[in-house]
Nucleic acid binder design. Structure first.
Lengths: 173, 173
DNA sequence: GCTAAGTGGAAGCTCGCCCTCCGCTTGTCT
DNA sequence: AGACAAGCGGAGGGCGAGCTTCCACTTAGC
């Protein structure tokens, strides 16, 4: 692969991560191309369609997203930290992982989803067990919160997230 | 106005309220028409464009939305009650009041927006003063929460709203 | 220098939605 | 009952946003 091609490929991937973080997983391809200072043609030669681009992004970001859980004990504290970190730093990757995009033949994508779902389940179970998280909050709810913040970032002010998370702790009457 | 025309007009308005509550203020006109068991033609004869329809809805629902504040004292308790009530029962009207729709020549619409904004400001000020609401939560934030729940109802599970509101009360360490 | 790889962006296409139009139906009045 | 204005439905033309292709031009690499 020629050096300039490689450079453009990288530029496209990071532009895509940015744009997806801002606009959600259905951001126009043209916006991504322009952000990368590249014509749409270039984008399409490198990634035959949106799904391929998202898959490449998943491959790129999966590790750092999952590493962010750290090695600490499972529980509400860790989980909460991860949620806040992800919304702050991992929006692009999350948007990809959680977007409503049909995905069956995109292996990396499927894997990322499964791993996130599994880890989320485990953390929620631990949080419930230790009593750090209200019983009425499910892993599904959290995944929807993550999705709302990452796929539709304009809909809720991000400084309200900590308050929502506060509200998820058991009431202290 | 002929009797059947009147009937259809009413059907359209309530279908619109439903659909807007479900899909947001940009719901396709055709969806509204179908829900009302009416052709698009009928819809358009009665309301020359989407703006006119929304304006009529605003006229229809403004009072009940504002009445829901009740006569009680201003403060967090009242405000919170209103927010929950509105999201539960007033989504259609709210979606209209808060949607990002240019609106300058739709008097009823403008009036509704202003009255809601004013009441919200007053309630938030009172809530801050009595110490029922964290200082970092502004009237704008609340209006954005209302908008998220009413204009994009699919993005957040509605049973999380009470938790978010819990989190808005001052922390009790 | 030569050439194959790479590039940008105009152009064509699809799709979803907006709104108009007109032949048919129906309420209303005599 | 009959006439006729009012009302109706939904096919269809138009439009804009976004996807994808294509090809004349540029450039890295030998």
């Amino acid at each position: 692969m020629r050096a300039d091609a490689q450079r453009n490929r990288d530029r496209i991937l990071s532009a895509a991560a940015e744009v997806v973080a801002e606009l959600g997983a259905e951001a126009p391809m043209e916006t991504i191309a322009r952000r990368a200072n590249v014509g749409v043609g270039t984008l399409y030669r490198r990634f035959p369609d949106r799904a391929a681009l998202l898959d490449a992004l998943a491959r790129e970001h999966a590790e750092c997203l999952l590493d962010a859980f750290g090695q600490g004990p499972r529980g509400w504290k860790t989980l909460r930290g991860w949620i806040e970190w992800s919304v702050e730093h991992g929006r692009g990757a999350l948007a990809i992982a959680l977007a409503d995009v049909p995905v069956d033949d995109l292996p990396e994508f499927v894997r990322l989803r499964e791993r996130i779902a599994a880890e989320l389940d485990a953390q929620v179970a631990a949080a419930h067990a230790e009593g750090g998280l209200r019983a009425e909050v499910s892993a599904d709810d959290l995944s929807q919160v993550l999705k709302a913040y990452s796929c539709h970032p304009m809909t809720l002010p991000s400084h309200l997230l900590p308050l929502l998370l506060d509200g998820m702790a058991p009431p202290t009457p």
